[in-house]
Nucleic acid binder design. Structure first.
Lengths: 126, 126
DNA sequence: GTAACCTTGACACAGCTTTGATAAGGTTGA
DNA sequence: TCAACCTTATCAAAGCTGTGTCAAGGTTAC
């Protein structure tokens, strides 16, 4: 059974061997090893390495972000805690109609503009 | 009215005014403003600032991580892309049937040559 | 009317992340 | 055997994060 070595995998995916080791270290792609410890990249891993590049480029995110998303997915307590913190967005009329949301956004903008253009335009906006 | 200024909010939550502005800048907590632009921290925001501290401490994550989780939650395309990347289990050589693997082996050399001579990414006939 | 706040913006700095380079040593295959 | 790989570990540099501090100017409250 053969697979690509780290150098070959790097060449076919556009990463460097250094980065392949880094990607493994942060838990994103962990190739199998030979008995003597050589990394073996199979077809699936090569595909994932390529799509990983696209993912980063298309959404302007970093490897660390993907690693955090992985951690979120694996650590149920963490994702629950983060989710419940994010859930509690204050002051915002959540779960309301779209036009109410829009009105809220407009008022927020008005507040900011009022702040920027030196007052007396709006009164409390409530 | 029971809205605190940034200094007061900092004191009751354990953050510094500087950090409150930073937390706002990365989109985590955006307090209302007075007409003249002063930040107003209400009871809900104070609570969120306190629980934010706990969240970071208990799970050893950073503000940037929470900001990314927020971005994931707001950007449906991003979270879909990240999720589907994470979803794809790496199909190792072991998981590929024998004749598929043989075909893979036969094409291996051509793949490497192609990757070296053109910068195009090859599509794998998955 | 002035002290004590607030605003944004900028400079700065430690520490972490990302990436490369290099070293010392093991494995492979012609 | 020997070239050309591979491994881990370490040093290094560029860039980003988190945080302090200060400046220039507007607002509030006594």
């Amino acid at each position: 059974m053969e697979a690509l070595t780290i150098h070959e995998a790097a060449q076919t995916t556009g990463w460097t061997p250094r980065m392949l080791r880094y990607i493994e270290r942060i838990g994103l792609i962990e190739p199998a090893r030979t008995e003597s410890g050589y990394r073996q990249y199979g077809a699936g891993e090569l595909q994932r390495l390529r799509t990983l590049r696209e993912l980063l480029a298309e959404h302007e995110i970093g490897l660390g972000d993907v690693a955090f998303a992985l951690r979120l997915r694996r650590d149920e307590a963490l994702s629950g805690a983060v989710d419940s913190w994010l859930e509690a967005e204050p002051q915002r009329p959540e779960a309301v109609s779209a036009d109410e949301w829009l009105r809220w956004e407009q008022e927020k903008h008005a507040r900011i503009i009022a702040a920027l253009t030196t007052n007396e335009t709006m009164e409390t906006a409530a």
